[in-house]
Computed example of a mutant assay.
Amino acid sequence: MSDTPQSVSSHTALDQLRQLIQQQAAQQPLPGERELAERFAVGRREIRRALNVLEEEGRIWRKQGKGTFVGPAAPVQPLMLHDLPQRSNLLEVMEARIQLEPGLARLAALRASGEQIALMKRLLERMQLIALKDGDQHELWDSAFHRAIAEAAGNRLMLGLFDAVDAVRREPGWQHLRELARTADRLHSYDDHHRRLVEYIASRQPQEAATAMREHLLVLQQTLIEAINCGEEEQL
């Protein structure tokens, strides 16, 4: 399994659709899949995948024969700092995540609504079902899962920072490293981490949720270091 240009297209479609729904009033219909695909220069498959994520998040709703409609708007527009990937690297991204996301998990355990916890559980189920079958889709659900925690924290500024870091993390030039860091055993381990996170958030255990998130990200950081070393050896 490897990331392909479809992976980039799916993330592009999701990012641009999030920005589009920010600009539309609730209950307004979105353009059809064909028009969206042409507008964003991606395939209809990538549009459908992005719409699936947005529907699961509660951003949109669909009615057969009528179209797709904007639901509750995201609290902040994602902060997209396009030049950061050229001035940063994946290890800096992980350092930023380790500083930011445990705090988000702690706040989510204090503030998450029942609806937001239910969303986390659905996203976790999606990831577990996909497993190694589709790396592109698994990465989309993983990103949506972490964003659901960030949003449940109830801090718009921190959510904006999360979106900025997440956008840098998905820099297309780093796909090969993300691929090296993703194996069956690691994905199963990550799903276990995610399950514990949801349990702590749902049971209102803020310190445990923060610790679980930090441990999860430290494992990811070590995995990326190993992937970087492996990639350097391949170039020798």
Rank of each mutant, 00 (worst) to 15 (best):
M80D: 14
R59M: 08
E33M: 11
T12G: 12
P72H: 03
G43P: 01
A112F: 07
G154M: 07
G71C: 09
L30C: 09
R196Q: 14
R44Y: 00
A148M: 06
M94R: 06
S2H: 15
K121G: 09
L180I: 08
A96V: 02
L54N: 05
L140K: 00
E46C: 02
R182Y: 14
A41Q: 15
D192S: 12
A209F: 04
R44C: 13
V198K: 05
P102W: 00
H216G: 04
D166M: 10
A150E: 04
P85K: 00
T211H: 13
N89V: 08
N229F: 07
E55H: 11
A73R: 06
E151M: 12
Q222E: 14
L81P: 11
L132N: 11
P102Y: 00
A184Q: 10
G32R: 07
R196T: 11
I228K: 07
A210G: 01
N155L: 02
E125Q: 13
V165I: 15
T183N: 08
Q19H: 08
L36A: 08
A105G: 02
I225Q: 13
G58W: 06
R49N: 11
N155Q: 09
L224M: 13
V76W: 04
P5A: 12
D136E: 15
L104T: 04
P29L: 12
R97E: 08
R111S: 09
V53E: 05
L119E: 12
N155M: 03
A210Q: 06
S113G: 06
W141D: 01
I98A: 07
V165P: 00
L129D: 14
R111M: 02
Q6D: 14
H11W: 10
V165F: 05
R182Q: 07
R48G: 04
R111W: 06
H176R: 15
Q222I: 01
Q99C: 10
L218S: 05
A184H: 10
L177N: 02
